[in-house]
Computed example of a mutant assay.
Amino acid sequence: MKRIAIVAAAFAAMLGAAAPAQAEKVRIGYWSSGVSLGFGAVLESGKFMEKEGLEVEYVKFPDVNAPTKAMAAGGIDFALGAPAAAAMSVAADGLPMSIVLATQVAELDFVVPDDSPIKSMADLKGKKIGGSPAGSATAAIASAVFEKNYGFASSDYTLVPGNDPRLAQFLVQKDIDAAALRTVTLALVKDVKLRKIGSFREEWKTLSKSDAPPVLGVGLMRNDWLKANPDAAAKVVAAMRKCFEFGKSDKAAVAKALIDAANMKEDDAKAYAALWDGIYTVSMEPADVASLKAEFEVFKSVSAVKGDLPDSALPTAPYEASKSIK
């Protein structure tokens, strides 16, 4: 009997060794519009997560703040472009999620109709200004710019929320006086004559006294999943990094992914793809952590966030571990 037991145990061990390793599962969420759409489309079509051995489920949301809310409810494990302000806010509040990557740079311009009498940012006092909804990083950055650079109180202008195509339409209809629009959008609305009066990069440089551009989107990860799957977390970051590098080197493939995923016209997809290098980033170097902390303090100064952002909310382990994944 003892020998039979030994043989059975050895046979079971052989079966276990022969069985393929079970793929680690990850649920990835992103906003199905705005800048998140482009990266998400290329990430999915290129199967970058799957190539790292992950079993992935993509969940797309119609609202920019929805991925963060879904993560708080345990519905997803990773958000590839969560609004920086909202992500910082939930982390400061102690919700169990962490910022593991900077993923999007705030490449936006303040624009007005070409025939508008508005000549400068200072002329926006008392005006209707279109932008992303409250809770978004875009809204928080714009609020900080108006208050710190121009002395505007929140009562000195009216924020009209909406997505970029809608805001461009509002400008044409003269329903708003100005808008903060992404450079991607401006490249696509060729038939609308708009005039730039300022940019997020330059205004942020003045505000922060730093050359680092403001971070618009971050990679947000659920703490329970991160703790239970440290190796998979590194694979997620590795897939993000490889997708970013792929997009930099193959603009035609980016355009094709946008045509297929977003039903975008070829010319529009090519214009979007050409901006890839400037609107995306996949990094969590010490400089990125410092920039995120500085951004939090700016947001806090205009009451866009509260509390303190602990170091534990900005773990760099997944990013560092991803560097060894070839």
Rank of each mutant, 00 (worst) to 15 (best):
I4V: 02
I4K: 02
A5Q: 03
V7T: 00
V7Y: 00
V7P: 00
A10F: 07
F11M: 04
F11I: 00
F11H: 00
A12V: 02
P20S: 01
P20G: 02
E24Q: 05
V26D: 02
Y30M: 15
L37K: 13
L37W: 11
V42P: 12
L43I: 09
E44M: 11
G46D: 10
G46V: 11
E55D: 03
Y58S: 04
V59T: 06
V59R: 14
F61N: 00
D63Y: 04
N65G: 04
A72W: 02
A73Y: 07
A79K: 01
A79W: 00
G81F: 00
A82H: 05
A84E: 09
A87N: 08
A91W: 08
D93L: 08
D93A: 05
D93N: 07
L95Q: 11
P96W: 05
V100K: 12
V100G: 13
T103P: 11
E107Y: 07
E107H: 04
L108A: 08
V111R: 12
V112R: 07
P113I: 03
D114R: 09
D114Q: 12
D115K: 10
S116H: 04
P117C: 09
I118W: 11
I118P: 10
K119D: 10
L124G: 09
K125R: 15
K128I: 03
K128R: 15
S132M: 14
S132T: 11
P133L: 05
T138C: 11
S143P: 12
A144P: 15
E147N: 12
N149R: 08
N149M: 07
Y150A: 08
A153F: 14
D156E: 10
V160W: 12
V160C: 12
P161G: 13
P165T: 01
V172K: 14
A178M: 05
L181Q: 08
T183G: 15
T183P: 08
V184L: 14
V184E: 13
K190D: 06
D191I: 05
R195E: 03
R195N: 02
I197N: 12
I197H: 15
S199T: 15
F200N: 12
R201D: 15
E202K: 13
E203R: 05
W204T: 03
L207F: 08
S208F: 06
P213V: 08
P214G: 04
P214K: 06
L216W: 08
G219Q: 11
L220R: 06
P230N: 02
P230Q: 03
P230L: 06
D231L: 05
A238F: 13
E245L: 14
F246L: 13
G247K: 15
K248I: 14
K248F: 09
S249E: 10
D250E: 15
A255I: 01
L258K: 04
M264F: 15
E266M: 15
D267K: 11
A269W: 12
Y272G: 00
A273V: 02
L275I: 12
W276R: 10
I279S: 08
I279N: 07
T281G: 05
T281A: 14
D288R: 03
S291I: 04
L292S: 03
L292R: 02
E295H: 03
E297A: 05
K300H: 07
V302C: 03
V302F: 05
D311Y: 08
D311V: 05
S312H: 11
P315D: 15
T316K: 14
Y319F: 15
E320H: 01
A321H: 01
A321E: 03
I325L: 15
